[in-house]
Every structure is written in structure tokens, then in C-alpha cells.
Design a protein around this nucleic acid. Structure first.
Lengths: 243, 243
DNA sequence: CAGTGGTCTAGACCACATC
DNA sequence: ATGTGGTCTAGACCACTGA
């Protein structure tokens, strides 16, 4: 491959990106194996080493698993998909996972304010969908969640969320839009409950609440979802294990 | 290198292990740069690619940092084992690391209450040391920290902390007591500031504060330190990156 | 300019899986 | 026996850095 490279990105990155999209498109189902390095090298007309580097990055991110002598297998995402991975809010009653019920309050079209535009790296005023959701922990309505998705990334997600019973958000993002959420960044603050929170969470005015601002990133490093979660910590807390 | 390989491990792993030990022995001080790949390849009598793979693993583990055109540099390490690893509180002024000044308000002998005894798995009433510390972020006194160490684990730590200028806590635990802190567990809540916080942090009564309860575990899984950190999130926040 | 790390190639041999 | 990924070599060109 002696041709001058018009694209800025390294070849192995391009290959990786393309392979990731093929995996997300279910060209190979979870558990199935990809073509061998040799085959892919022929297919993309590159050397084996370049293909190897692309696949190794995918393996380090957990998208595929490699086994010497057998092949490269797509990690099962989907069935056993763990939405718990990013869950940090827990009820105070230690042991039981008494379930996390969710109820959508509304889903509507809005435009991105300056905070959202900065977080998702989209122009201010960009159109998108806002969803407001009430989460119950240990049967008590405890947490309010406000989410935003840009129309650019997730067109029609408002319709999806208006269905009577919806799967977890990150499952929808993967199945319907090809975004595999692998990383989230959260900022936590303590503040006084807003009127909206007082009403929806049945709090007394002046109650302190924990606020979590989250940005969710897909495999390709792009910010896909912006979310504000809030609630009183009288019966729940945010737990973080580091190390 | 055609000789049969007597050792089971891949060469690059052996090289990596050797280089790591040399870094830990301070053959190159933090901030200094290692010999170039070419030089190391000559030194070890291996090809550049093998050296590269060894160094790349070290870089992915954060032991060294690589910069194209310059070299491979030792990350701050060794005695000053990164206390940043568990640091989640950041000032809102994004970029600058204007320093985190610390001032000890008192260090005294106390006995463990029920909360501490449960956290550290020691009998209630066990004797220990309590330290109260004020941390400034961006020059503003922002965070109050109350720590507890049992006499059983850390005898005489009260004396150490009463010295005029003290190293970071986890450095003391490692150097003086042999506890390498590798994991912490944190519980976060939002609540109203106590009178003590109002006074020491110059808050107005009724201000909401973020409270972080931390248990620090040593390599051997034993709970060594219990800590409560609290402060208003007007000018700082707790940041968490997951994934 | 020379030196660095970053990318890419085209071979080679190995240990392991499967048939 | 064949094919897989894992390791290793010996070249090449690139972009970037610093003198």
C-alpha cells in the first residue's frame, strides 16, 4: 500500500472503526467469530499487522475476545447486557435489590441550551428529544432523571420512548442507533430541591438533593446522551468503588 | 535471536518486567526520559518492535508517558505514588490545578463510635486517632475532612500528623505502617451543613453540602482508614469517570 | 538537521484448536 | 495437516521535536 494517504487517521484506526460498525450492525452475532486476520488483510488489502492492531484495540475495549488457535469472537452484548455497569445509586437497605421501577413523565422535542451544547459538542439550539423519567428505588419514587438526545444522533427516539413499555435506554441506543455506550462521565453536586422535584418526588421545600450530571460516550468516543439525575439521599446514596 | 527460548514468558514481557524494576529503582527519576527504543534494542539485543511492545504496555499502565518526537518519560511515581488516583473533588474552574492546600485543625485521641466500628470492622469503643483537616481548592477553603485511624493499625499516627508539615496521608500509611492503599469505597449524600461546617467553611446556615463517607482498604483487603469529607458544591464538584 | 516515537509492511516461527 | 492467534524480526516512511 504505497499510495499517499489522503485521510488523516491511521489506517488501523479506520479499519477498527469499520469493524466496530460491522459488529454493531450484527454482521457477526455475539458469540460468532470474525474472519481471520489473514482474510481481513486480504479483504481490506492491508498487511496482517495493521489488521491485528485494529483488532487488538477492539479486544482491549472488550468488544471482542481473542483465542489463540480458534479465532476472534464477538463479545456477547445484548442478551446479558449489563445496565448495572453505570448504576451508582443504591437504596440504603443494604442487601436487597428490590427493583428499580421506571415511569416516563413526558417525552418531547426541545432545543439544546448552552449547557447541553457544551456537553454534547453540538451547536446551541440544535434540535433533540428530552425525556423526563421517575425512578423508584425500593418501591419509593426517589429519583428524577432528565435526558437529552440530539436529533442528529438519535432521530425518532421520542417515538421509541413513547411506547408503552420500553427497554433500558442504553439498550435502545445500541439496538436502534448503533451506539454502544462504554463510558460515562459524571459530575455530582448538592443543592436545594427545585419546585419540580418537590412536587414529583414529594419532598418538603428546602430539602437538599444530590444532583448527578452525566455525559454518556459511545465506543467511538462521541457524546451521545446528556442526563441530569437528582433526588433526596434520605433513603438512598451514590456508591463508588475506586481501585 | 534464533536461540531456543528457555523461558516460558514472551521476551517483551521479560523486557517490560526488567524495565519496570529499573524505573522503580529510580534508575531514571520521575520526569526523566528513558533511552530511546533503538538504544534499548541494542542494549537488550532485541529488535525495536519487541522493545516497543514492552514500553507500550508500561505506557498503557500509566508508568511512563510517550511523546512523539521527544521520548518516553517516567510518570511521577515511586514514593509519591499517585494520591490523585482517589481524588474526585475538583474545582469548577476547569483547567488550572491551582493546588490543594491542606491545614490540620486538630489531631486527637478518640474512641470508635458504632458507625466507625462497623466501617473498619473493629470493636465499638476501640481507641484511635481522629484528625480534622481543612482543604482549600483554588485557594478557597472548601472541604472539611474528618479521618479516623485505629491505634491497633496505626499507633502513633497522631504524633506524625502533628508535625508542622506532613506528607499525604496515604504516603504515611505506606511508609510508616506498610499499608499500601489500593482501594477505597465511597458513599455520597446531600445534606444540610452542620454548625461546625458553617463555621469552618464560612457557609450560611441551611446551605446544602455534599458528604462523602470513605473507607480505605490496604492491599490485604483490610479497612485502614475511615473518612468523612464534606463541603458546599458552589465552587467544586465530585467527578467520576466510569468505563 | 538528526533523533524520537507512530505507523505500516512482509516475512518468520511458535503453541494451540480442530479435524 | 491445516488454520488460528501470539510473538519476533528487519526493514521503511511519516510527523513531530529540538538544536
Amino acid at each position: 500500500m504505497k499510495e499517499p494517504r489522503p485521510s488523516a487517521k491511521p489506517l488501523y484506526q479506520q479499519v477498527k472503526q469499520h469493524l466496530v460498525s460491522r459488529v454493531l450492525k450484527k454482521e457477526w452475532r455475539p458469540g460468532e467469530c470474525l474472519p481471520s486476520e489473514m482474510r481481513l488483510a486480504e479483504e481490506y488489502n492491508l498487511s496482517q499487522g495493521t489488521i491485528r492492531k485494529a483488532i487488538e484495540e477492539m479486544a482491549s475495549e472488550g468488544l471482542v475476545t481473542r483465542q489463540a488457535g480458534k479465532g476472534t469472537f464477538v463479545t456477547s452484548h445484548g442478551g446479558d447486557y449489563q445496565p448495572f455497569r453505570f448504576r451508582r445509586l443504591h437504596g440504603d437497605s443494604e442487601e436487597k435489590l428490590t427493583g428499580y421501577e421506571e415511569k416516563y413523565i413526558h417525552t418531547k422535542k426541545v432545543t439544546a441550551d448552552s449547557r447541553i451544547s457544551r456537553a454534547l459538542q453540538i451547536p446551541e439550539g440544535a434540535r433533540g428529544t428530552e425525556a423526563l423519567r421517575l425512578r423508584s428505588i425500593d418501591t419509593l419514587p426517589t429519583v428524577l432523571e432528565r435526558m437529552f438526545f440530539s436529533d442528529e444522533s438519535c432521530p425518532g427516539i421520542d417515538k421509541v420512548l413513547q411506547q408503552p413499555s420500553t427497554p433500558p435506554i442504553y439498550f435502545i441506543l445500541e439496538q436502534d442507533y448503533g451506539f454502544l455506550i462504554t463510558r460515562v462521565s459524571e459530575k455530582l453536586r448538592a443543592r436545594i430541591a427545585t419546585d419540580e422535584e418537590v412536587e414529583l418526588l414529594h419532598l418538603t421545600p428546602g430539602t437538599p438533593v444530590l444532583e448527578i450530571e452525566r455525559i454518556a460516550y459511545s465506543l467511538g468516543r462521541e457524546a451521545v446522551e446528556w442526563r441530569i439525575t437528582s433526588g433526596s439521599t434520605d433513603h438512598m446514596h451514590y456508591r463508588n468503588e475506586i481501585g
